[in-house]
Nucleic acid binder design. Structure first.
Length: 810
RNA sequence: GCCGGGGUGGUGAAAUGGCAGACACGAGAGACUUAAAAUCUCUUACCCGUAAGGGUGUGUGGGUUCGAGUCCCACCCUCGGCACCA
């Protein structure tokens, strides 16, 4: 009987006593392997099966790579700043420093039960000053490079969290964290200019990432190629409106121009008669939340300004409108409307009875040119595809693609147009009006203005004695006088600190650089160690970070590269996402009360069984719905494996050739399963091995081989068996077995015989049997004869796939 | 609407274009036991048939091929992501 509890305790203790997983970072002998999981937030809750589902296979991968001969570094830490601890403090009065310390300790204890090979000596906690002073350092580096700036802008505001949010943290117009409706607010905030890295962030060369994730980032960055076009404002010589369009080929079809309500020209151009309507419209647009304003299919609204713009390509006057379907944050905040060829313009034009002119027809449409400038064109919808230009002056007859080039080039001569690439990606808003984060290391001086702290003045420590409850949209720090009052580092005069703290995504945007130098006092990371250990070889975490953490981390890493601190641009070479474990089809969450705890299973069956059961559920990247129904299967397997290995005798039915083949077949299957992150098939392979070994036996030598094979998946049991089989060193210092292809070949194989595509029988042939021989034997089969010899049939074709099948076509 | 992933037994699932359902769970039958648990053995896609055997089957409809879960076309459902970005 295998005693999992006793065995697992024993080995966890021994591993930690021996420091088996303390990676020697300066080792020159073995190639390095940086195996990283996204570090957890230390909530007070216990680990649930989702955590295990993520961490256990990730650890098995690390163990596998270690046995493959790599010097594996598998660090862990806590992403400990952020709202939950602060909200908890508001509710209970317990200081975040206290609750986070408790939670980290609790979490460490639970993580250790999994039996991972985390190198705890390199643990980092982002809310420790020894970490966050370097987060502040990162901020200063960006500031120095002009990549951190302060700007008054309409931002996302969560009224319940009382803080601003980055675009990435707003989902469906709701706060990612508390789900309340996000509103707009004009505030002066700190931004990181991630936009200037848009082009580089689109390049994924050399990255082994899921296609899906790369696509999501691409879409988020949203690159589009188009042109800017200048429309002169009629009667205001020299005043121009710049619009952005990807369809400059439809310029002749422009029947009006639309400005975003926030557009700076609005006040200037609006005619007296229209001022009241315009002012009212802008007011109502301001009140709209982003979600309402940006919902597609929403009824389009707008007002006329009374002003007119001149189409530079044909001198035609078109009215200027204001509508909130045009966004100030994209392009130039102004568009040329071509209702005949754009769905949004079409809907708007129809509502306000604006003219439509068809200027592009589908390439294969040979019909007569439609009448131009005809309000009554009875059209059901806009034609938005590329085609051939009509009613477009000199450009008539050109393809859309060519026309885009020609029109832009010609207008460019007079400075009226230019090619322009735009991105949907907006700058990263990093300030938060909350307490529990890294203070932004900036000072505002009455004489010098905005002054960055020098590196020697870091860390800016978070004051301890603070009223956490947010007040009036200001950070709690703003009310701590001792914190706020400071002397200006430049002139020595009275100054004030920045009271906002940083988005926690800033903390996690560089932590992978810190790990190898976790205890370092004189810098955020060591250039030497970073260049040696990074990029991260394997990064494992949830797909929900695709457009947040994973994008921010790439950006910050690129900035550090550009500043000359590190040699590599990309932080994560290979990325794998674990699938989601649901309960009754729903995501596990405390509020739904459907969180499954692993505790009962781990204490009944042990970590090894539970780890393997999670892996046996299906492919790692697929996830699945939780059910405990099958765990007994894995428990039985572990018992059988243990008994097989503990039995020192070779089985009575021992057959050397079959036994060897069994072992090598297993090595192949298990290795392929682990490599593909389909641990379920690896475990199935081991189960098959045991079933077969019960029949054909297994030698002492092969027992050791198979024990090494299972070690990454069931680390505790493997160590125990390894020791039992007489080995003194840890099994994780042993190498991973590889298979001999020659050992896989069987003497004979059973192949299928098909007649007209249907399997009608089988025949046992010698391996590698010739075609003639195979066909002859197949034809002789009783079950086949009757088909071949039926009256009126003859063989039209014979197919032989060696070791697979014979197929007759009659 | 657009972009991805996925639809295979009662369940979790497996399958370089080559005998669909490996490996498990569950269920049924049997062995051991005074009995139960545990363990072991056998059966288990569906339909017809006592059997031998035959037929049907991987979301739907077509196609390519000697042969399709796998490739191609059209569609349905589902889960994620994006969504007035001009």
């Amino acid at each position: 009987m295998y005693d999992a509890q006793q065995v697992e305790k024993k080995w966890q203790k021994r591993w930690s006593e021996k420091g088996l997983y303390t990676t020697s970072l300066h080792d020159q002998k073995r190639p390095k392997y940086y195996n990283l999981v996204m570090f957890p937030y230390p909530s007070g809750d216990k680990l649930h099966v989702g955590h295990w589902y993520n961490y256990a296979p990730a650890d098995s991968w690390g163990r596998y790579m270690r046995m493959k001969g790599f010097n594996v570094f598998e660090p862990i830490g806590f992403d400990s700043f952020g709202l939950p601890a602060e909200n908890y403090a508001i509710k209970t009065g317990i200081h975040p420093t206290v609750s986070i310390a408790q939670n980290c300790a609790k979490m460490e204890e639970q993580l250790s039960l999994i039996g991972t090979m985390y190198d705890w000596s390199k643990k980092i906690v982002t809310s420790d000053p020894e970490y966050y002073q370097w987060t502040q350092w990162v901020f200063l580096q960006l500031y120095k490079k002009g990549l951190a700036y302060r700007k008054r802008a309409p931002v996302n505001w969560c009224p319940s969290c009382q803080t601003v949010l980055a675009n990435e943290q707003v989902n469906d117009g709701k706060c990612d964290r508390c789900k309340s409706e996000v509103t707009k607010k004009e505030l002066t905030q700190w931004f990181f200019n991630i936009r200037s890295y848009a082009e580089r962030l689109l390049n994924f060369e050399g990255l082994d990432w899921p296609e899906k994730t790369k696509l999501m980032q691409q879409h988020w960055i949203g690159r589009s190629e188009g042109s800017t076009v200048q429309f002169e404002i009629f009667g205001r010589s020299g005043k121009k409106i710049e619009v952005y369009t990807t369809r400059v080929d439809t310029l002749f079809g422009c029947t009006y121009v639309v400005l975003a309500p926030e557009h700076p020209l609005v006040g200037e151009i609006t005619e007296k008669l229209f001022e009241k309507d315009v002012a009212e419209y802008i007011e109502s647009a301001k009140r709209e939340t982003d979600i309402n304003r940006s919902a597609e299919g929403r009824d389009k609204t707008g007002v006329e300004t009374g002003a007119y713009a001149v189409n530079p390509v044909n001198g035609k006057r078109v009215p200027i409108w204001i509508a909130d379907y045009v966004l100030m944050t994209y392009g130039t905040g102004a568009v040329m409307a071509v209702p005949a060829h754009d769905e949004r313009d079409f809907a708007f034009a129809k509502k306000y009875d604006l003219p439509m002119i068809t200027v592009v027809k589908p390439p294969r449409d040979n019909s007569v040119e439609p009448p131009s400038d005809d309000r009554s064109i009875a059209k059901g919808e806009a034609f938005t595809g590329d085609g051939v230009l009509v009613s477009s002056g000199d450009y008539t007859g050109l393809s859309s693609e060519l026309a885009r080039k020609k029109i832009t080039e010609l207008l460019h001569i007079d400075g009226l147009a230019d090619f322009k690439v735009n991105y949907k990606l907006r700058d990263w808003l990093v300030s938060r009006q909350r307490y529990w984060g890294a203070p932004i290391p900036m000072i505002y001086c009455q004489t010098c203005g905005e002054v960055p702290l020098s590196e020697e003045q870091l860390p800016v420590l978070l004051p301890e004695d603070v009223e956490f409850r947010p007040k009036g949209g200001k950070s709690p720090l703003a009310f701590v006088d001792e914190f706020m009052a400071v002397k200006c580092p430049t002139c020595g005069g009275d100054a004030q600190r920045e009271s906002d703290t940083m988005d926690t995504f800033v903390d996690s945007s560089w932590y992978f650089l810190r790990y190898p130098a976790a205890r370092m006092k004189d810098g955020p990371f060591s250039t030497e160690l970073a260049n040696k250990w990074l990029p991260v070889d394997m990064y494992i975490g949830g797909p929900e970070h695709a457009c947040m953490h994973l994008l921010y981390a790439r950006f910050i890493n690129m900035v550090m590269h550009d500043l000359g601190y590190i040699d590599f641009e990309e932080p994560f070479k290979r990325l794998v996402h674990q699938g989601l474990v649901t309960k009754d089809g729903a995501k596990m969450s405390k509020s739904k009360g459907n969180v499954v705890s692993p505790d009962a299973f781990v204490s009944q069956y042990g970590s090894d069984v539970f780890r393997m059961y999670l892996m046996f559920m299906g492919p790692f990247e697929a996830g699945g719905d939780w059910s405990d129904l099958g765990i007994t299967g894995v428990a039985r397997f572990v018992e059988r494996f243990w008994n097989l290995m503990a039995d020192r005798e070779v089985n009575p039915g021992f057959n050397e050739a079959s036994s060897k083949r069994n072992v090598h077949k297993t090595i192949k299957k298990v290795t392929e399963g682990i490599e593909a992150f389909t641990f379920n098939t690896a475990i199935a392979g081991l189960m098959e091995f045991v079933n077969e070994a019960m029949k054909v036996g297994v030698t002492m030598e092969d027992k050791k081989m198979v024990t090494r094979l299972i070690a990454p998946l069931a680390p505790h049991m493997a160590e125990e068996i390894w020791e039992y089989l007489g080995e003194k060193e840890s099994i994780f210092n042993a190498s991973y077995p590889s298979f001999d292809p020659a050992m896989l070949i069987e003497d004979s194989v059973e192949i299928a015989i098909q007649v007209n595509g249907k399997v009608r029988g089988t025949v046992v042939l010698a391996t590698g049997c010739t075609k003639d021989e195979a066909l002859r034997l197949a034809r002789e089969q009783e079950s086949i004869k009757k088909y071949l010899e039926a009256p009126g049939v003859s063989i039209k074709k014979e197919i032989y796939v060696p070791n697979k099948l014979v197929s007759f076509v009659l």
